[in-house]
């Protein structure tokens, strides 16, 4: 079994061992894993061909997406499909897709510059963020029209403004729901988290309502691997972001679960039964039942 991993070079400042653990597990399972750093090499377009049984698009850079797009174009099986990864990176498209699927999101506007938001601020604060960014980069809360002058975000491009709902909880808890192979995992994280351990947060048992919302997100994109950020305001949930390959921090046994899912999907791909199909022999019993 051969798997190609499109990744960004691991920074020494980051301490998440998730992908290292995933790679180690897959190698223990006799999988030949080739790690590809699209941003660190010159890629001959003609040389982009299907050389692995499965590709995993972990890197979320523009170039990584382009390489994934090229692989997609020549029929490569990709765990987290390229069109979905691209759409999730485009917050405008992703939010509209979620909205259309009945997922509750805050009121959202698309703008070219923050200065146009003055009237909306009379109704309450807004979160402004670039339409193509991840991990909260460039996002800021604007409470007053006076702040709009300084709210020009780096990089240019369209902006997304969302009504800001102060999360419930003393420490403005940040809630994540991660999906690995159709299984959901809730993680509660303090906004004030500083250390790696704090940033991992604590798992929580998801309510039926949140589970249904997460499953609507999954169905909206037709994927089994993603993460959503959500907030609860007065007990009402709002999805504020979605990621095609998040870090899964705080998910119990995340690396093992992720490796198990990647391995099973690669087996499906080798048997020509991927993607979008479901294999009755290999799907976990829970997933089988859900599909039934």
């Amino acid at each position: 079994m051969k798997i190609g991993m499109l990744m960004t070079p691991h920074s020494t400042k980051r301490t998440s061992p998730l992908m290292s653990e995933v790679l180690a597990l897959l190698e223990q399972w006799n999988v030949k894993v080739e790690v590809v750093y699209p941003d660190d090499r010159v890629t001959l377009l003609l040389g982009v061909r299907v050389e692995h049984d499965l590709y995993v698009l972990k890197a979320q850079t523009e170039l990584a997406h382009s390489i994934a797009g090229a692989l997609h174009a020549v029929g490569a099986p990709i765990l987290n499909p390229w069109p979905v990864a691209v759409m999730m990176r485009d917050k405008v498209a992703a939010m509209r897709r979620l909205q259309a699927a009945g997922v509750p999101i805050p009121d959202t506007w698309l703008i070219s510059s923050p200065q146009r938001l003055a009237a909306l601020l009379e109704e309450g604060p807004l979160v402004i963020k670039p339409s193509r960014a991840s991990k909260g980069h460039g996002a800021r809360i604007v409470w007053d029209a006076d702040e709009l002058e300084d709210a020009i975000l780096p990089g240019g491009g369209p902006l997304l403004a969302q009504r800001y709902h102060k999360p419930d909880g003393a420490d403005e808890d940040d809630r994540k729901i991660y999906c690995i192979g159709g299984q959901l995992f809730g993680v509660l994280r303090k906004v004030s988290a500083r250390t790696f351990r704090e940033k991992c947060g604590e798992p929580f048992t998801i309510t039926k309502e949140l589970r249904d919302i997460a499953m609507r997100c999954a169905d909206a994109f037709g994927v089994e691997l993603f993460g959503v950020d959500l907030i609860l305001r007065d007990g009402k949930p709002y999805v504020v972001d979605i990621h095609s390959f998040p870090g899964f921090k705080g998910v119990p046994d995340a690396a093992l679960r992720l490796a198990d899912y990647i391995y099973a999907t690669a087996r499906l791909a080798m048997a020509g039964r991927m993607i979008g199909g479901r294999d009755d022999d290999l799907a976990a019993p829970v997933a089988k039942a859900r599909s039934a």
């Binding site: 995992f185 509660l188 947060g201 798992p203 929580f204 048992t205 309510t207 039926k208 976990a284 997933a287």
Partner: peptide, 26 residues
């Protein structure tokens, strides 16, 4: 059908039908 155990030891589940606010699991 789509629920999984987070902890076998403590029988903590991924999700539950209970209408309570989600509580962190240590």
């Amino acid at each position: 059908a789509d629920n999984v155990l987070l902890s076998l030891k403590e029988l903590v589940w991924s999700w539950a039908r209970c209408p309570l606010m989600p509580q962190p699991v240590q």
